[in-house]
Amino acid sequence: MCSEHRDNEGTGKQGMTRRGFMQIMGTGAVGASLSGAAMAAGSKPEPPAKILDATDTVKINLNINGVNHAVLVEPRWTLLYVLRETIGLTGTKEGCGRGECGACTVLIDDIPRYACMTLAVEAESRRITTVEGLMMGEELGPVQTAFLEEDAFQCGYCTSGQMMAVEGLLRKTLKPSMDKIRRGVSGNLCRCGAYNHIFRAASRAAGLKTK
């Protein structure tokens, strides 16, 4: 982090900044998803009921891997930060914190999403699945098994993200083509370059899932 960014931190004058963050209270689905829906309906966004300072905390409920977590968060905290640093689910990794690498991929309502680009408050009332949620107790799920058997990783740091991308793909497409597989994981960087084995693991996982 370099100090050159600090000029528009906190002032709020240049639109949305992290510190002068606007937060709508009292609804379940908020933030990007709501404004998306509102825009689609052609209506003007309602003025916010309340403006919070960045360091105010709000209580939210997160449904993660089928378990409800009531957590106190600052509105600017990302889902990734809350998963890793507050709740302690560290299977989800951070590679960039800005939507470029996919290491933080989780499923939100079965769709792969970057947890670093999702505010925790946005994720309220959504069904969140992390790599820990692919486990069946102590046993590996099919995508995990396939990754293990095909050696679809080296350092393993991108791996949970890759597996969540594949899981998301397979929840939508039972038998994806190689092209679909490559596109399915194209939002997930692997600096170790294990892509080839990842492709194989994804095909194997598709087989294991339909067995």
């Binding site: 302690g88 560290t90 989800t92 951070e94 098994t145 058997e149 050696d151 990783f153 393993g156 949970s160």
Partner: peptide, 21 residues
């Protein structure tokens, strides 16, 4: 032969330095 630490790496239980709390 699959890796001896593959389970930890794919289950998410492997604790990397950035996971330490």
């Amino acid at each position: 032969i699959p890796r001896v630490d593959a389970y930890e790496r794919v289950s998410g239980t492997a604790v990397y330095p950035s996971d330490i709390k």
